[in-house]
Design a protein around this nucleic acid. Sequence first.
DNA 1: AAGGCGGGGGT
DNA 2: ACCCCAGCCTT
Length: 346
Amino acid sequence: MLLLDWYRRARRALPWRGETDPYRIWLSEVMLQQTTVAAVGQRYHRFLARFPDLAALAAAPWEEVAAEWAGLGYYARARHLHAAARAMVAAGGFPRDAAGLCALPGIGPYTAAAVAAIAFGEPVVPVDANVERVMARLFGIDRPLPGARRLLAALAQGFMDQPAARAAAGDFAQALFDLGAGLCTPRAPDCAPCPWHDFCIARRSGRAAELPLRQEKRPRSRLFGIHFLLRDAAGRIGVRQRPPAGLFGGMWELPGTPWRAAPWAEAEALAHAPVSAAPWQPAAGEVVHLLTHRELRLRLMVAEAPALPPGLSPLPAAAALPSLMRRLLALAEGEAGSVRSGKRRH
DNA sequence: AAGGCGGGGGT
DNA sequence: ACCCCAGCCTT
């Protein structure tokens, strides 16, 4: 098969390539949900150093898992990963097929198929955005996503039903990923070296870069909040745990106002301060943090107190915070405010 | 079927 | 300033 030949020549060297331990395959797939390979980076090895196997992860308290996941985003993934590890230990180990995997929290059709194909050789295609893009172009599918999802999945599974692919299910799946990530890219596909160059309908009509079509997205709504950085006499920072579900569910945060559509006046926000008597001082600047469908605009008030009040815990390490909260902390260090999401300016 | 849910890299 | 990414869960 042309694709498998190309893959054996051109495949990427990735940290999880060549792994056979289903735990390690599973972890890589969950980290990569809606997350680029570059963003995962060294976090895969770091996580495994801390939680080397299913038993270690299942035995760990949630706070340690949350701290290890901090900064990776989509925090429900960490909650589900932890819950699934405990469920698997209780059930005696890993389900050996896609159907069994799919019943676990945080494992949907994609992840179940990926683990089944890569770890167990089950001839199922994990349909991610790469596979959808490749199939939409190869067959020239004009129907926009997400409506075309089932059609694209069926087309991909058709390839897996060929004997050469069935005999190397994990390689075939990863070959589609590498094709999508390296050649059949979203913006400017590099069609010349593509193993399916001659058969690709979109390329033959010069429309590869235009497919797949997508439904229009809704505009971002804006949320405002003011948070409070309280240090005790020892310099420890008081944090609390967010509710288990919803935005940044289960993660540490600086105490603050609720997030709402209208900006807060300082005096109004002080009603939500963890200590009312403290001399709160506003930090310069504002954090503007962009999520997929929200724009968070947060400001910071700073004060010291002899001791942290009940309800606040000392922050174990800044690295245990989601990126949003780390950026908020940076306001107190006098770093330039009003920096847009994520990337630092120098 | 649609919306909620982070963060960062690429262009 | 956008677009997109080795998706899943809830409503």
